[in-house]
Measured scan of single mutants.
Amino acid sequence: MAAGGDHGSPDSYRSPLASRYASPEMCFVFSDRYKFRTWRQLWLWLAEAEQTLGLPITDEQIQEMKSNLENIDFKMAAEEEKRLRHDVMAHVHTFGHCCPKAAGIIHLGATSCYVGDNTDLIILRNALDLLLPKLARVISRLADFAKERASLPTLGFTHFQPAQLTTVGKRCCLWIQDLCMDLQNLKRVRDDLRFRGVKGTTGTQASFLQLFEGDDHKVEQLDKMVTEKAGFKRAFIITGQTYTRKVDIEVLSVLASLGASVHKICTDIRLLANLKEMEEPFEKQQIGSSAMPYKRNPMRSERCCSLARHLMTLVMDPLQTASVQWFERTLDDSANRRICLAEAFLTADTILNTLQNISEGLVVYPKVIERRIRQELPFMATENIIMAMVKAGGSRQDCHEKIRVLSQQAASVVKQEGGDNDLIERIQVDAYFSPIHSQLDHLLDPSSFTGRASQQVQRFLEEEVYPLLKPYESVMKVKAELCL
């Protein structure tokens, strides 16, 4: 049975990233139509530049190519590739079939990587351009969430054990800070992308030097003109047959890092959902379990974690691919890159769409948070109580021993009897502590235990987050809708 299948058929496997999760716009960027249309555009740009620099290419040939950029006979191309065992030459023939007058000058002087690699770089750039505003929107939604809850005390956790208090907004800023680093890295790697350009079979530009009869300047002009037509500021000066596969490492490393950030955020949300302090959106008709109707599973956060793990592992592909590119190139890269580049971007696209949807509907339960604080705060307040007693004339050592005994009794009630923490009640009825009984409410005010959390939130948002989001103001209103 021949390899390949009808990918629109229910009898043929289709990647869930495309069929179930990723956005239509990201799927289109990695589609065959987008790819092969870009090949034709690159052939047109090459012909236009070659004509401008004096090669015998007519206006009629150029116009014929322009008129057929979208006229792609995919069936013919597939048949040609089956016959020739070469995808680029299959599309040269297919393009030439609908451009008979231009057929002889299509791909003039070029090698397969002229269309293959340059198209990949265009796709990487455009895919990054799709991700950047999506990530900015996630940051914006979380920034709104953090600002609104900047002063809401909550129990902090280290080692997932109760620690000092923080605020809900401050905790959210930990998430935002990681995503801001990801946004900066995505922008950097996007701006650092260079075009492969017009380089020939081993990167020496020998074929173009021959076409222009040894004119170095025209060869350099050709490279520059096509690079500018493709919208790049610069091209690699040095290439082998391909652009260095280190570029793929750079791009997928940034995406993998984004995956790590999203995994951490969504894990926190899942843990908070278990504590009943916070939940992701839950639709009115949504079913959490087929057997347990009360369940409210954090399905979206779980999906993000599941896909983020996949995204983090994909960076190993370009690392290994770059390491086995012998001399000017081997074909070890080809099949692998067809999979890992598309999957990385479709996965990143999915987790950003999902995280935006989550961040637009996060639900906080202040009463649950308050109750958990009441359970733990008495123990945390013991040092403040000791200091207040010393100020009232008591002995630190005597007070410490009193607190120690009462704390152990209260802990026994919590752990052995399943009761509430009654340390404060014990202190309130103990005559030894009568000098500070009137101060206990103040000493137990949760806001006095959150330090500068709310001020940190305000400063972080104003100095770091809002300036970073400013270039994306025009796209901030787009909502994230999930079908599944």
Rank of each mutant, 00 (worst) to 15 (best):
C113T: 00
L174G: 11
S434K: 08
F30P: 05
R190A: 08
K187Q: 01
L55F: 08
E425M: 14
R40G: 12
E148I: 06
E50Q: 06
Q205N: 02
I123R: 10
R137V: 11
K170S: 02
N336A: 11
G361T: 11
Y114G: 02
L152F: 00
L17R: 01
E48S: 11
H86F: 02
L377R: 07
R245W: 06
K415R: 12
Q356M: 03
E343S: 05
S207T: 10
L193F: 06
C483G: 12
A453T: 08
N421E: 05
A410M: 13
R270N: 08
L255K: 06
L346I: 15
C113P: 03
T330E: 01
R404L: 08
K479Y: 14
T242L: 12
L142C: 04
C113K: 03
R372T: 15
C305N: 15
I351C: 07
Y466E: 00
S261I: 03
E220Y: 15
N336S: 06
F433C: 14
G5V: 14
L275D: 03
L132V: 08
D441T: 03
M278W: 04
R171E: 15
L132T: 08
F30E: 07
A143V: 07
T330D: 05
S289K: 15
L69G: 05
N421M: 10
A49L: 05
M65I: 13
L209M: 06
T239N: 13
F36M: 01
N274W: 11
S289A: 03
C172F: 00
K367D: 12
V219Q: 01
L17V: 09
L155R: 03
A47V: 08
E302L: 07
A110D: 02
V475L: 14
I358M: 14
D349S: 10
R374T: 14
I105Y: 00
R426V: 05
S334E: 01
F74I: 06
E79D: 04
S448W: 10
S9I: 12
Y34W: 03
C173L: 12
R141I: 13
E383D: 10
I339C: 06
R329L: 04
A388W: 06
S306W: 08
S447L: 10
F232Y: 13
S23Y: 14
T167P: 08
G116L: 04
E417T: 12
L319P: 04
A381P: 15
G197M: 10
V478E: 07
V254D: 11
